[in-house]
Amino acid sequence: MQREIRIALRVTVATLALTGVAYPLALSGLAQLVAPAQANGSLVTDESGRVVGSALIGQRFTEPGYVWPRPSAAGAGWDATASGGSNLGTTSRKLRDRAAAELERLRAANPEAIGRVPVELIAASASGLDPHVSPEAALWQAPRVARARNVDAARVRAVIESQVEGRTLGFLGEPRVNVLLVNLALDRQFGRAPE
């Protein structure tokens, strides 16, 4: 047994050095070499070159001239150091009340929107940092965005449609619109959104 314990100790140290230190360090070096943009967080800049966030991490939008994302349960909302969902179940009164209030807010802010509210706009995402909404959810908001920017709704819809990402290979995941990227596209097209 003493022999096994000696081996155990040595294998512990060896595997720790190999898989716990050497492997991630080597991979980080390689990553910075071959794909630095992705390795460092897929950061996005605006027209002036200022970093405005990551294409992968959702952020809060409340101004009427921007497309809004889904509710976020990360920290106090969109806290990228406290990712997570609401974890409320289907029999939770808190969840139903929150959804009803969100619905009320959306309807008040989008009086001219056509059709019912897409359900994911009142449902918090898993990470609280979901960067996307469905194309339907983005298009549903087009009349509000158009009014705030004082442009034709059809032009806003065209910008949104140009930003739709389809399913990968045609069948994986869901069609979606990246909220930060579509809002940058709107700013490019129509100028900075009025507050």
Binding site: T90, E120, I122, A126, D130, H132
Partner: peptide, 25 residues
């Protein structure tokens, strides 16, 4: 979907989206 959302005026039959990511569905 979530039966508790049935009374809310949202798109019916869209599924239970609470705690799910848009890109996965």
């Amino acid at each position: 979907g979530n039966p508790a959302f049935a009374g809310l005026a949202v798109e019916p039959g869209a599924g239970n989206w609470e705690g799910k990511e848009s890109r996965f569905g």
